[in-house]
């Protein structure tokens, strides 16, 4: 059973790209339907991994990430953030930590920097899913 990866990115071209790459490499992908509430989609799909873009018009990725971590049914879902912003200076280090109600949140599981290199993407994805698999095997 291939792992199901949900891609949350408002930009269709990037969505298409990521889905093609991941599917070509044996993963199953999904994405929230047009106009669908992201939280609903997450709870319905219960994906094995979420690739989350940070900058989107309706809700920022940070806000979605915070909700995800604060929602019991999906709190455990691993998240890799995607952004063109440098790791050290951007949201990841500087701003998540600075969020008043975000200080206790478990940090994202991975970070994928734009422009996306396929090897890097797959490496991050596989690493997260393997780790996840390990813990699942241990806990089972």
């Amino acid at each position: 059973m291939p792992k199901n990866i949900m891609i949350i990115d408002d930009e269709e071209d990037i969505r298409t790209y990521l889905m093609a790459v991941l599917e070509d490499n044996g993963f199953q992908t999904c994405t929230p339907a047009q106009e669908e509430n992201v939280m609903h989609a997450l709870q319905r799909e219960q994906p094995d991994l979420v690739l989350l873009d940070i900058m989107m018009p309706r809700r920022s990725g940070i806000s979605i990430f915070r909700d995800l971590r604060n929602t019991a049914q999906i709190e455990h879902v691993p998240v890799a953030l995607i952004s063109g912003i440098e790791k050290a200076t951007g949201f990841f280090n500087g701003e998540i930590g600075a969020l008043p109600d975000g200080t206790d949140l478990r940090p994202p599981d991975g970070f994928i920097e734009k422009p996306i290199r396929i090897e890097q993407l797959l490496e991050v994805v596989e690493k997260i899913l393997e780790t996840k698999g390990d813990t699942r095997e241990l806990s089972d």
Binding site: D13, Y17, A20, G84, P115, I116
Partner: peptide, 17 residues
């Protein structure tokens, strides 16, 4: 640079497809 990264990603996506 940030804008170009986004565009590059989309272009790379196009190339990949």
């Amino acid at each position: 640079a940030h804008g170009i990264k986004n565009l590059t990603t989309a272009l790379e996506g196009g190339m990949y497809m």
